[in-house]
Design a protein around this nucleic acid. Structure first.
Lengths: 209, 209
DNA sequence: TTGTTTTATTCAAACGTTTGTTTGAACTTT
DNA sequence: AAAGTTCAAACAAACGTTTGAATAAAACAA
């Protein structure tokens, strides 16, 4: 374990407040209070507020690379199943990390910190590479059509998912799901969105306009 | 004209800096400097930094409601053409207002200000209402299929467009368009995205899974 | 037109808070 | 005894906003 319990408490408090108020909006005093600790502990353990943000990012990003690689090399899955598994993985990850998802959205708009921007760029690059290889495989096997823009397809996957999750309230109201419990609604939204995206992707990968 | 030249200069400087640094990240001194004026003019003309942000929003939102209504009532368009026109309008608006688009993205994640959150909610509500009516019309005419989720379709439109525009650099690199001029690239991206979304929407509206 | 009064704008300076970070002594754990 | 941790207090810098005097513009009476 890289971080102690105390450090993880601070990281989680920071994640929550960065998500709710933004990097500039959340003060180190807010974060320390949320983590039930002293202000100076942030500098003591992480060096600075910005380094703390980097720790928040690193914590959520480790492992996702290996997971993606494993998916690509999984022999038991067809190319179509790999794409579907990719959708499941994305929606699952964004759903299970709502705070971090908000931070990511905010920072990708225009990141102040070059370090963070580079991390985001790295993840984008790796994701694209995997999608690209899966799609190419599928095309060579004759399962997918020829004209597929992986950049736009990836943007559709991430953009739609984020938009839905950030406007979950709107969706809930429009579908009269307000009596449903929060947990049930989250599960329902996740399943609906996943199957929606799979339908869209099937069309994108096979339907000749 | 509601605002004087001087006030518009401040609003535009604010729009730029709020987009680049976020609401908390951009100081009133930054904004005043960008607008070549004194710090106190912001309080003098707008009352506060937050009211200035509201002015930035109001300026970009007026007129969009009427435009959307006009589109719906346009008798010369088929329902399909209306959907396509909607896509054109969206992509066009988001492309032509890159600064405001970034602000919108940031604020919709979790707006600090209730006033801004209400403005965003209002726009979402109106957009949804128009899409919903167009889709219902198309279904009654037998042009669209029955099972269409307007919430998800709207999320796909807005989410994908924003994701593409915010990652335009990535798209440009992946498609080897870096020798193209900025203007040409913008036009190219806009056209590619528009036609991509139209294809997706055609599938969403007619393709039975 | 004239001079005068009123209103609107501009600006440097200052206001009181809050910001991220550091300090140095006290306290725990090795 | 040594190293690691905690905390209230203090640090300078930056924050949004206000002030009050100086200037410009507009309105008005002669």
């Amino acid at each position: 374990m890289e971080y102690t319990k105390k450090q993880m408490t601070i990281i989680e408090a920071a994640e929550k407040l960065f998500a709710e108020k933004g990097f500039e909006g959340a003060s180190v005093r807010d974060i320390a209070h949320e983590a039930n600790t002293n202000v100076s502990m942030i500098s003591y353990y992480f060096g600075s507020k910005e380094k703390l943000m980097e720790a928040v990012f690193d914590r959520r990003m480790e492992g996702s690379r290996a997971q993606l690689e494993a998916l690509y090399y999984d022999q038991s899955l067809t190319t179509f199943q790999k794409i579907y598994a990719l959708i499941d993985a994305y929606v699952g990850k964004l759903t299970s990390q709502p705070y971090f998802n908000k931070i990511w959205m905010r920072e990708q708009v225009e990141s102040q910190s070059c370090v963070i921007a580079d991390k985001i760029e790295g993840v984008r690059e790796r994701n694209f590479a995997v999608i690209n290889r899966i799609v190419k495989d599928g095309q060579e096997l004759g399962e997918f059509k020829h004209e597929i823009d992986c950049s736009l397809m990836m943007a559709l996957l991430i953009g739609t998912t984020n938009q839905v999750l950030n406007n979950a309230k709107h969706y809930r109201r429009k579908h009269d799901l307000e009596k449903m419990s929060d947990d049930d609604f989250r599960t329902h939204l996740k399943e609906t969105l996943t199957s929606y995206l799979k339908t869209v992707f099937k069309a994108l990968l096979t339907y000749e306009a």
